[in-house]
Amino acid sequence: MSKKLIALSMVTMFVVVFGLAGCGGQQSAKPADQKVLKVGSETTFAPFEFQDEKTKDYIGFDMDLIKAVGKQMGVEVQVQSMGFDGLIPALEAGNIDAAISGMTITDERAKKVNFSKPYYKSGLSMVVKADNNTLKSFKDLEGKRIAVQIGTTGASEAKKIKDVKVREFNNAPEAFIELNSGGVDAVVNDLPVNEYYIAQAGGKDAKIVGEPLNSEEYGIAVAKKNTELAEKINKAIDELKKNGEYEKIYVKWFGKKPPQ
């Protein structure tokens, strides 16, 4: 083969290779064009996120809210169920775009992710068995056995109690099961989650005692570098509050209007 033919062949090869590479780059951009928002959530945190027994769909306050946010943004929301302690790592790895799961906004978490503006105010409370009349406040938990959900603020606060024995579970239902079986003396979790559990159980097996430990605010988390998405979510939340959709969702799940 002549030198001219060799040179021509090499040029052709480079054109084909780089042309294909260019096509590949365009293909990788398609997910953004499809307008899909991949959302992670720990879906056993009723009434915020849980699975409908009949339809198997993920429902709850958070689920309705994120779908409304997605609609406002003009994107399709796809929910992925995962462990609560895996949500922030999934955001950092780019496996999901956002996380909504009754996640309290804390300084420690804010170092790793960007939070939306708060969308719900909560607080920690304790649940004991219905026949327990000795535990009446968080101070009474000193030296006791406490069940918590791993990776939550409830777990962090429980560990601060003197001489306490903390047992961590993957989700809230497992913690309540442990309480019913007598494996722990109390469950420490978010107040609305505890209230929902008591309501569903009819108040026969357990009760909430004492005042809420603190005040917490929930936020929707996105990757630290994704400030644009955080801004879009904030704008959508503002619009939902203005047009009354946020209030409708709140009343649906909590039976009362949101605090002003």
Rank of each mutant, 00 (worst) to 15 (best):
A223S: 11
G19T: 01
A223D: 10
G123H: 09
N133M: 15
S137L: 15
I6T: 03
R167Q: 12
P47I: 02
K256Y: 03
M13L: 14
K257T: 08
A155E: 14
N194A: 11
F138G: 11
K232S: 11
Q26T: 05
D85W: 07
E216S: 08
M13F: 15
L65R: 03
V251D: 01
V209Y: 08
K111N: 14
N189P: 11
K56Q: 13
E231H: 10
K207L: 15
K252A: 04
V187L: 05
D163Q: 13
A32D: 03
I59R: 04
Y246F: 09
G83E: 08
M126Q: 01
F18A: 01
K129S: 11
Q80E: 09
I88S: 09
G22A: 06
K112S: 12
L141T: 02
K136Y: 09
A68L: 11
F254L: 00
V11I: 09
K242R: 04
Q200S: 07
I88K: 07
A98D: 10
Y246C: 03
T106D: 12
P212N: 13
Q149T: 10
E108V: 15
M1H: 10
P118H: 03
M10C: 08
D131F: 12
V79S: 05
K67Q: 08
E168P: 02
Q78D: 00
F18L: 02
N226F: 09
V11G: 12
K139C: 15
A130Y: 08
D205M: 11
L141R: 04
E178F: 05
G203K: 01
F14I: 13
K165L: 14
N132V: 14
N214I: 15
L141Q: 06
A230E: 11
G25Q: 04
D205Q: 11
D97V: 05
I105A: 00
Q51M: 13
I220T: 02
K162S: 12
D163A: 15
K232I: 14
F18D: 00
L91D: 11
I198D: 09
I146G: 06
Q27T: 04
D238W: 06
P212M: 14
T104F: 09
E157F: 14
E211N: 11
L240G: 07
G22E: 07
K224E: 13
R109G: 12
E108D: 15
A223L: 08
Q80G: 09
L135M: 15
